[in-house]
Design a protein around this nucleic acid. Structure first.
Length: 263
DNA sequence: AACACGACCTGGTAGC
DNA sequence: TGCTACCAGGTCGTGT
C-alpha cells in the first residue's frame, strides 16, 4: 500500500515509538525470498529516515535496517508479540518489552540488514525527493525534456522522482488536468510547472491527513487514501465534470483518469 | 526507448 | 455456500 506519504507517516510514527530503544531479541517468521537479515540484539535505534519509498533504520553498530514495504508492508509497534498478525514476517523486541513488527501479507517487501555505506549506496540511484527544495519546476522540466514516454509511467519511475506510485501519480495528473498518456517531453513549461506544484500539494495533503488520522490509531494500517479523485473510481462520475472515470492499462498497471478533465 | 509480460506472493471481492 | 476470475498502493529481469 505504501507510496511516499504512507511511508513518511510510518516513519514518523516509528520515530516517536522507537528512537533510543535497544533491540533485545529478533524473531524471523516467513522471512524467505526478498528478506534477509541476521539476528539483531543489543543495538540501539538511532534514526529512522526515509528515501523515496525506502525506510532506513539507523543502528548504533553502524549498520542500517533497509526496508521496502512492497505492496502491502507495514511497520509498527505492538505491546505484546501475541498482537502481531499472522502475516508478520519479522519482529524486534525492544528493551521496554514492546515489539517492532514488520507485517507484510503479500510478502513482496524487503528487509535487509546492511552497513550504513551499503544502505547509502542502495538508495543512491533514486531520483529527487519531491518534497525537498531540490525538486523545482525547472528540474522536472529538465528531466522531462526530450522524452516521449507517457507522463504517468515517467512519474512512477523511481530514477527520476522518488516516491510516487500508482495512486499519487494518477491523482497529481488529475489535479493538473493532464492526460496520463501525454508524452512527458512535449508538455509545455507551464503545464509541467503546474504538475510540479500539484505533485507537491497532493503528497503534502496526503501526509497531513494521514498523520492526523494516525494520531488516533495505535497500530492498524491507515485504510485508505484521503485523496482519491480518480484512483479506483472507474465508471463513477468525475467529481469535477461528472463524466465517468476511465481505467486504462499502462506499463502493466491500471491508470485511472477523467477523459473530460485530462488532456 | 518504451513498452509487454512474468515472477515474486497472498487476500479481498464481484460474479456466477 | 463454493468456486472462479480478477484486482491490488512495488520492483526486477527478460524479451520485443
Amino acid at each position: 500500500m505504501p507510496e511516499l506519504p504512507e511511508v513518511e507517516v510510518i516513519r514518523r510514527r516509528l520515530w516517536e515509538a522507537v528512537h533510543g530503544r535497544t533491540v533485545v531479541e529478533t524473531k524471523l517468521v516467513r522471512l524467505s525470498g526478498r528478506a534477509s537479515i541476521g539476528t539483531l540484539h543489543g543495538v540501539r535505534i538511532e534514526s529512522v529516515d526515509r528515501r523515496g519509498k525506502f525506510l532506513l533504520v539507523g543502528l548504533s553498530d553502524r549498520r542500517s535496517l533497509l526496508i521496502h514495504l512492497g505492496m502491502t508492508g507495514d511497520l509498527y509497534v505492538v505491546n505484546d508479540w501475541r498482537q502481531a498478525p499472522r502475516t508478520t514476517r519479522a519482529g524486534f523486541r525492544l528493551d521496554d518489552g514492546r515489539w517492532l513488527v514488520f507485517n507484510d501479507p503479500r510478502a513482496l517487501g524487503k528487509l535487509e540488514l546492511v552497513s550504513l555505506a551499503e544502505a547509502a549506496k542502495k538508495v543512491q540511484r533514486l531520483g529527487v525527493e519531491p518534497l525537498s527544495a531540490e525538486f523545482t519546476p525547472e528540474l522536472l522540466a529538465s528531466l522531462a525534456r526530450g522524452r516521449r514516454q507517457p507522463v504517468k509511467p515517467f512519474l512512477m519511475d523511481q530514477r527520476w522522482v522518488a516516491g510516487l506510485g500508482n495512486i499519487y501519480a494518477a491523482e497529481a495528473l488529475f489535479e493538473a488536468g493532464i492526460h496520463p498518456g501525454h508524452p512527458v517531453g512535449s508538455l509545455s513549461r507551464a503545464r509541467l510547472a503546474r504538475l510540479h506544484r500539484l505533485i507537491v500539494q497532493v503528497l503534502e495533503r496526503a501526509i497531513e491527513s494521514m498523520w492526523n488520522a494516525a494520531q488516533d490509531q495505535q497500530a492498524s494500517w491507515i485504510e485508505h487514501t484521503p485523496v482519491a479523485s480518480v484512483y479506483r473510481r472507474a465508471g463513477q462520475p468525475c467529481l469535477r465534470c461528472g463524466r465517468p472515470i476511465q481505467r486504462m492499462r499502462q506499463a502493466g498497471r491500471s491508470t485511472y483518469y477523467c477523459p473530460g478533465c485530462q488532456r
